[in-house]
C-alpha cells in the first residue's frame, strides 16, 4: 500500500466497511432467524416486519421442544455423523497409507478405481442402495443410516496427498529399526497427519450432518429422524407459525455453527496443507 498516511487510513476504513457489509449480508438470514425465534406469534406475523423482538419470548423454544423430540433428532444426527466420521477416518487412513507409502502390484489401477467413486452421483446408486437396506432389514436403524457412507474416495485422496508429504527417509529408517508397517502407520504417520485428519473429520461430519435424501428414505419412525428431516417436516407437515419454526431451526443449527467456529482455522490449515503437494 502506498500514498500518504491519510489515504492509507481512508483505504483501510473503506476495506473495513466493505468487509462489514459483506459479513452483514451473509449473516443476515441467520440473525433474522434468531430474532424471529424470540418473537411472539403476533410480532412474527406483523408487516412491515419487525427486526428486533420486544423481549426474549422463550415460549417458542418450550413449545417446539414439547411438540417435537428435537434433542432426540440432534442426538440421532450426532450418532450417525460421528460414526460415519470415525469410520471414514479409519478406512481412508488405511487405504491412503497403502497408496502413499506401500509399493504393490496394481496400485495405480486401484487408485483410479477409488477416484472413480468420486464421479458417481448418488442418483445412480440410491435406488439399489435403498433396496439393499430394505432387504437386510436395516430400515429405520442407525446402521442403515451409516453403512452406505463408511468409505470415501475424497477422503482417501485427501489423506494420500498429505501422507505423500511425509519424508520417505522416515519410513526407511523405521523399517530398518524393525518397525512393522501397521505400527509405522499408527505411531508415525497418523500423529504427523493431524491437520489432514482434522480436515477430513470436520468435512465428513458436516457432510453427514447435512444429509437429507438418505435419512428421508430410510427412516420412518419419529424417533429415528435426523435433525434435517425433523426441521423440514416442521415446515411442511405441521402448520405452525414461523416463530416456532425458527426456534427449531436455531436449536438444530447451534451444534454445527459452534463446530465451525471452533474448527474453521483447522479446516483452512488442513486444506492448505493438502493442496501444497499435487
Amino acid at each position: 500500500m502506498s500514498g500518504s498516511p491519510n489515504t492509507r487510513l481512508l483505504r483501510k476504513a473503506l476495506l473495513y466497511v466493505l468487509l462489514g457489509a459483506a459479513a452483514l449480508a451473509i449473516l443476515f438470514p441467520l440473525l433474522y432467524a434468531l430474532t424471529v425465534s424470540f418473537m411472539t406469534p403476533d410480532e412474527a406475523a406483523r408487516f412491515p416486519p419487525k427486526f428486533i423482538p420486544s423481549g426474549l419470548y422463550l415460549d417458542n423454544y418450550r413449545t417446539v421442544l414439547e411438540r417435537l423430540p428435537i434433542p432426540r433428532y440432534i442426538l440421532n444426527s450426532f450418532i450417525v455423523s460421528g460414526c460415519v466420521m470415525l469410520a471414514q477416518l479409519v478406512t481412508a487412513s488405511l487405504a491412503a497409507y497403502a497408496f502413499a507409502v506401500r509399493e504393490f502390484r496394481g496400485r495405480t489401477t486401484l487408485f483410479i478405481i477409488f477416484l472413480s467413486t468420486l464421479m458417481i452421483p448418488w442418483e445412480v446408486t440410491v435406488i439399489p442402495n435403498y433396496q439393499t437396506i430394505l432387504q437386510w432389514g436395516w430400515k429405520d436403524t442407525y446402521i442403515g443410516l451409516i453403512a452406505p457412507f463408511v468409505a470415501t474416495g475424497f477422503g482417501t485422496f485427501l489423506l494420500r496427498q498429505f501422507f505423500l508429504t511425509i519424508p520417505k527417509e522416515l519410513h526407511d529408517a523405521a523399517t530398518l529399526d524393525g518397525c512393522g508397517s501397521l505400527r509405522y502407520l499408527l505411531t508415525i504417520v497418523i500423529p504427523l497427519s493431524r491437520p489432514a485428519l482434522g480436515t477430513l473429520g470436520v468435512y465428513s461430519f458436516l457432510q453427514t450432518w447435512n444429509q437429507y435424501l438418505w435419512p428421508l428414505l430410510v427412516t420412518d419412525s419419529k424417533n429415528m429422524r435426523t435433525s434435517q428431516i425433523g426441521i423440514a417436516f416442521l415446515r411442511t407437515e405441521e402448520s405452525i407459525s414461523y416463530n416456532l419454526i425458527m426456534a427449531g431451526v436455531v436449536l438444530v443449527l447451534v451444534p454445527t455453527i459452534a463446530l465451525l467456529i471452533i474448527g474453521q482455522r483447522q479446516l483452512i490449515r488442513g486444506l492448505t496443507a493438502g493442496s501444497v503437494k499435487g
Binding site: A23, L27, L30, N210, R235
Partner: peptide, 26 residues
Amino acid sequence: ISIFRVAFAITIGVSVAAGAVIFALL
C-alpha cells in the same frame, strides 16, 4: 480479519434443510 473469516465461512455450519427453511421465511 479472523472474525470476518468466520462470518464468511459460516454457511458451512448451516445445513441445506435448515437454510432452506430460513429462506422460506425470507
